[in-house]
Structures are given as C-alpha cells and as structure tokens.
Design a protein around this nucleic acid. Structure first.
Lengths: 232, 232, 232, 232
DNA sequence: AATGAATGAGAATTCATTCAT
DNA sequence: GATGAATGAATTCTCATTCAT
C-alpha cells in the first residue's frame, strides 16, 4: 500500500527525465534543490519564485522544468532531501558503536547535531509540509517514522540490556525528536541562553536519563569518563 | 523599544477604523479573525484568499478592507489572537491555587489542554509566523515570552519552596512549552499511540518530575491523592 | 445522454458567475464573445491572447475571468454563439410562409445569407472546433444537427406535398449546408466570379432543383413569378 | 508576380540546406513532413510541438532545424504536400481515358477518393492554412486553382463534346470540389448515413448530372454499362 | 550530421486591493 | 456601512529555437 503511493509519486518525478543522462539529472536536481531550500527557507514556498530559485542556482527558469515537473515537486524534493539527510547521519554515527547505551547517546547527539546544522531546513519542513499534496505528505510522514525507528531501536536495545526501565518507547522517541527539533524551532530564544552542547546535555539527554536503571547509571558514568578522557 | 515597535504596528491597524463605531469594529474584527484562522489553518496563508475568508465570515470581500489594512495584518491579528488565547488560559486556571507545586501542575496541564484544544491554530503559528513582516515577528516572540514567563514563575516558586532542585529555569520552561506544542505538531502520530491525559502524564510532567526534591515528591503524592479523590 | 453532457458543460460555464447579476453577466459575456470572435477570426484561437480580446472588448484582462472560466470556454461560447445565430435565422424567415416549396426556398436562401453575412465566424467554426475539448465538440455537432433538422423538415414537406421526388433527405440537406458553407470557405475565389444572388441561384438551389417533380416545377415557376413581380 | 512570391518563399526554405546532400535533404524532409502531418492532424498546429514531431519522425528536435527554417515552414511543407498529392492523383487516373464524359467521371471519382483517403490531411488544410503567413496562403490558393483547372478541363471538354449544356464552369467545379471536401469535413455525420460509393453517386455526380444533354445522358448510360460489366 | 541541453520570451490565470454605488 | 465589479501586477509553465559537442 505504502509502496504504491511512493511509486506513483516517484514515477511522476521521473517521467520528465526518462531519456536524459542520469548523472546530469542528479547534478541538476541537487543544484536546484539546494537553491530551492535556500529560497524556500528564506521567504517560504509561495513567496519564492521559480525565477528566484533558478537565479540562485545559476540557471534559466526554463531549465527548472527540464528536471522538475512543477514547483510542488521541487518542494517535495527539498523536504525529502532534508529528511533523508537528517536520517542518514544516525547510522553513520553508530558505525562501530556496540554498547546499547553508547549507541543511544550517540544517536541522540548525532541527530541533534544534524538538526542544528540544518536548522533552517528543518524549519522549512515544519512550515511547508502542509503545502504538499496529500500523497507527498504521506510520504513525508513515512520518512519521519523511518528516522524515528533508528532511535527507537537504540532505546529498545537499552531496555533489553537492562539500562533503561521499560517505557513507552515510541512516545519517548517522540520526546527526543521534538526536543531536537525545538533547537531549530526556538533557536531564536534557546541560542541566547545555552550552547548546543549544553542543550544536548540538559534537554536532550534529560529525556531518557530519568528512566535509567542503576546499571544504566553506572554504564553511563563509564561512557562519560571515557568520552571526557578522549576529548582531553 | 519594544513598545515603540508595537505601537507603530498597532497604529497602522487602527488608522483605517478611526471614525468607526468601536464596538462594530471589534465585532467585525473577531468575525474576520475567526474566519481567517479557519481558512489559514485549513489551507495556509497564501492559498486562503480574502474572498474565501470573507465568505466564511459571511461578509463581502470589500468589507474586509474597512476593518483590516491588508492580508498581512489579518494574519497578524490571527496569530496574536491565538497566542493570547493560549496565554489567557493559564492565569484563569491558576486562580485560587496557592501551593507552588499545585500551581506548576495546573499551569502545565491547562497550557497543554489549551494547545490541544486549538491544535490547528497552534500549527498555524508555526507555519505562518515567518510570513509576517519582521516587526510583527518581533511582536509574536515577545508574546511567546510573556506566556513562558507565567510558567517560569511557577517553576521558580517551586524551586524557592524547595520542591524542585535549582535548574536552568527558562530552558526547562522551553522543554515544557515545546512538548505541549509537540502534541499539536505531531498529533497525527501521537494521538494514535496515547490519549491526551496519558501524554500529559508521560511527556509533560516528565519534564520536571526528575528535578523534584524529596519534599517535592511528597507534596506531589499528596496533590495526586487529592485530585484522585476529588475525581472519584 | 446528450442533455447530461450539455448540463455538465454548461454548469462549468455557469459556476463562476453564480452570485452575479445575470443581466451584467449576459452583457459582459456578449461583449467578450464578440471581441473574441473578432480576434479568433483574425488570428486564430492560439495566437489571439486573452489580453488582445480584453483590449478589444475594452476591459481588463482580469475581468475576463470573472465571466469565463477559461480560454477554452470562451472559444466554445463563441462557436456556440455563431451556430445559434445561424440557426435562429431560419425559423424567423419561415414565419408566415405556408407553401412547402416556398418554405424550402426561403430556408435555403435565409440560411445562405446568414452564412454569408457571418462569413468569418463560419470559417472560425471550421478552423477551431477541433480546439475544443471533446465534450464541447459533441455539443457543437448536436447544434449543427439541430440546424440541419430545420431544413430537413422543409425538404420532407416538399416530398410529402409531391413537389420533390423521394430522396435521401439528410444527404441532400448536407449538400445544401455544405454548399452554403462553401461560400464562406471559398469566398476568396467565389466572390470574384459570382455575386451572392447568383451563387444562391446557381449553386444552392441546384442542389434540389433536379429533384423536382413536374408539380414542383410548376409551383416553383409560380413562386418565382410572384417574387419577381413583387420585386418589380 | 506569383512566381516571385513563390521564389521568395522557396528561397527561404532552401537557404539552410544549401551545402547538404540533396538526397538526404529530400529524405529528411519527407520524414519530417509525414510525421508533422500526423501530429498536426491529430492535435493541430499549435498543440503539436517540434519535439512531438521529431519523436514521431524518430529524430532529435535539433535536427528539424537543419532541414526546416521554422515551424511555420514545416506547416507549409505539409499543406503543400497534401495539396500536391491530391492534385497528382487526377492526371494519373485520367491516363489513357479518352472519352470526355469518361474523363469527367474518372476525374471526379479519383479526386473524391484521394480526398477520402487523406481525410485528416484535408481537414488540416482547412484548419491551418490561416496559420500560414500571407505569402504561403497565396501559394496554397494558387495550388488549389491548379487542381481545379484539371477538373475544369474535363468539364469544358464535355461541353465542347455536347455532353453537357453550357454552364458556369468554374462555379460547377467548385461545387464538385467542395462536395468532395465535404466528405472529409463532415465525415462524422456522412459516414454513418452513406458509404463513400453512395456518396460519390448521390452527391458528387449529382453536381453535374442535371446539366447533361440527351447525348450526354446516352453516353453516360454506356459508360455505366461498361463499367458495371467490367466489374462483374 | 545529429544530438539534446539550455535559453528566454510569452501567455494564461489568480487574487489582493480599490472604489463607485 | 456594505457591496462586489473591475483592475493589473505577478507567477507558473511551455516550447520554439540555438548551439556546443
């Protein structure tokens, strides 16, 4: 069911570039998506014109339509790009990390940092997802759930390993996620009162810290010692 | 400085209605703001047309311009209305509640409930605040801080009363606020997994629960007992 | 079946003017249709711009869309207007004419004359009917058949009255119709070689003259005598 | 004067292919003209894109401009091709036919059949000739007159031979021509009520049959007998 | 010769805003 | 005070045409 929606939507995006050089298509799309994220972030979907975006990308307005069916699809490609970039970071950061609690710490931190690094892009997803047509909104939700699942797995492993007390996992994940997003959404106020590192310590980890078992507590102290030593 | 900005913006809003019956002006504005919140929430600021809004309000398109300088200002009036409604609820709920911890519990719950009750309106503030001109954005931020201050005061009193350990108050308040907003922002996923009451218990109160002193813990149990008894 | 198509098409045309003063709507539509017939005739459907048409009608481009859903519909209204004008002429001319053969003569002549008087408009129907969407093409065909039926009735009555020998009526009607249209279609060559009156005598009437019975012949001579006398 | 117009137009068409292999030019032009007739007939001149036509011809869009100066000229080449094809058929059919009345019968029938065989192409000439620039329109008219002259000669010979009574020859030819075209123009209605053979008998020949002398009548019976016998 | 990527001019359409009634 | 007709600026999207490869 889900793959059907996905395919239909992706078919449309693909249809106009059927007989084009795939490498050029990828390059142009990236160029356009990056320019579009910039413009959409700056002034919003409706105020940003295709001409603006084309100018920002250094191409003609007409060229946009050789690679993107219409403005809607460009927005979708932007939001997709943003969400996938956010998601991609987590597995990369977890690479080689074995201990469940370490994995949770790393996942939360890497996710928060990628959100922080793409603050305006994250804002864009909050502001403009509604501007997509329903089939694309469904796709965006699916992608968000995919991301959540990565963190949920870390939490679950911590529970299984006896580091965290059993809890409503998805709800906890949502607290983590929305707190990370809050850094982007309320940056104007948070940045003046804390640094990102403080924010991660005080707000992000405090989501799950209270749920730690004594074993988890002990493990966490080891982790912090190690990471502190490594840093120094 | 802040009041100067405010005055300039409000002057503009007032100028066109100088010679009109103030009661009618208030009535018409409410009518329009409510219709506009409905339309803006449904389809967004740019897609909603003045004609749509006028129709929804049961008046002609021309009339809108007798009471609102332009579409931008209508959006501002809407967002202002939403934020003030959210803020207004807290003092009303705190009325007569004396105990600092009870006040915090009540403040958090009443705020969360008003957010939940005006879910779409809250979404609107997240989506469309950027569409305002800078001077209005500044005003919106100021109003948000005013609301936060109400909760911050409750937290502060709890700390003073020895119920909560000293903490970064404004940061804690932001965690409370953004968790409340998360109910609106992620309703599509949260509602299927928890009820609002569960959400308040599991997510809202868990922001500050871990910060409680033993005295706070004890006080909280009493509060819960009382409220449980009262309900039964 | 036919009326369903008709209604759907007409609904669309009506929908945008639902709450407007019907008199003004009629006036504006006529104004636009007349300007559009002029422009479409002059340069064709695709070359004529809405701006051209609006200018020709003495209104702004935006106004067009208050009365016409889109350019396609404007074309349809034009073609409909032309065909109905052509059709309307026949019953008016037949008013009070009783003799079957006289009716046929009058019908053919009045039809040919209205075609001749609206030469460019008729050309337009030939050139641009294909530009309509299928549902409108179907409507146009239906209207053409309605017109043909008026002449077919005259032929049929002549056969019944014994003035014409039995023949394939609809085919004969089509020869009359297309010969009339030929005056418009080939005006550039016909006008230099014959007058309209000659054309009617030599080409139009020669469609059915050979099919006359002796009684018809006799009747026809009487008619011509009368009309000649009346003229002299 | 006429040849001057012709030359100017044709010069333009020739200029871009000056230094190319003439055989390839002819081949490519045919390829493009045939593809273009297909597309123009199907959707009309303005809706058919150069890309569509190039695709239909199995070449790239860029190649078109190596053989055709612009879209206008392609249309002209198409219409010219159609008219010349129609014209070419008549002399071929008359080959070896000596008797004047037979020649007229053959000319009318062969012309009608070629029109019927290229129905959509004929429609195209009616719809799109106006889209040409004036100098091309003049050329098209000239070619139509050339075709007419072929039939006019047959009629004239019949008159000279005493088979037809003297008449307005060019007007008669126009009735023949436009009746033939009517099969294409009104195919949607004619085909459901008669076959092409019936149409030729009932509509085409009835243009000139009433003008036959007794000698013509007699000759015609012989022709029909022969042709009937030959067929059986 | 052939390709197809890129351009940019142009057209339909929408809608905030004005203003005569 | 209220209306809604009229305006016109602005935007998306298309496609003939060019040109480097």
């Amino acid at each position: 069911m889900h793959s059907k929606v996905k395919n239909r939507a992706e078919d449309k995006v693909k249809s106009i570039v059927e007989d084009k050089d795939p490498e050029l298509v990828t390059k142009r799309r990236m160029q356009l998506v990056e320019a579009a994220i910039g413009q959409f972030s700056r002034v919003g979907y409706y105020v940003a014109t295709i001409k603006d975006i084309a100018d920002a990308a250094g191409v003609s307005a007409g060229l946009v339509y050789q690679y993107i069916p219409d403005k809607q699809d460009l927005l979708f490609l932007c939001l997709q790009h943003i969400v996938e970039r956010n998601k991609r970071e987590i597995p990369a950061a977890l690479e080689g990390v074995k201990d469940p609690l370490s994995r949770l710490v790393v996942a939360v931190e890497s996710y928060t940092r990628v959100i922080a690094a793409n603050r305006n892009a994250v804002l864009l997803t909050y502001r403009e997802t509604k501007s997509l047509k329903p089939e694309y909104v469904a796709l965006m939700k699916r992608m968000e759930l995919d991301t959540n699942a990565l963190i949920a797995a870390c939490v679950e492993d911590c529970v299984k390993a006896g580091y965290l007390i059993p809890t409503h996992i998805e709800l906890l994940v949502y607290r983590i996620i929305t707190n990370a997003h809050a850094w982007a959404l309320k940056y104007w106020r948070l940045r003046p009162i804390v640094t990102l590192n403080q924010y991660i310590e005080l707000s992000m980890h405090s989501c799950w810290m209270p749920l730690m078992t004594p074993a988890g507590q002990k493990r966490y102290d080891q982790i912090k010692n190690t990471s502190t030593k490594r840093k120094s």
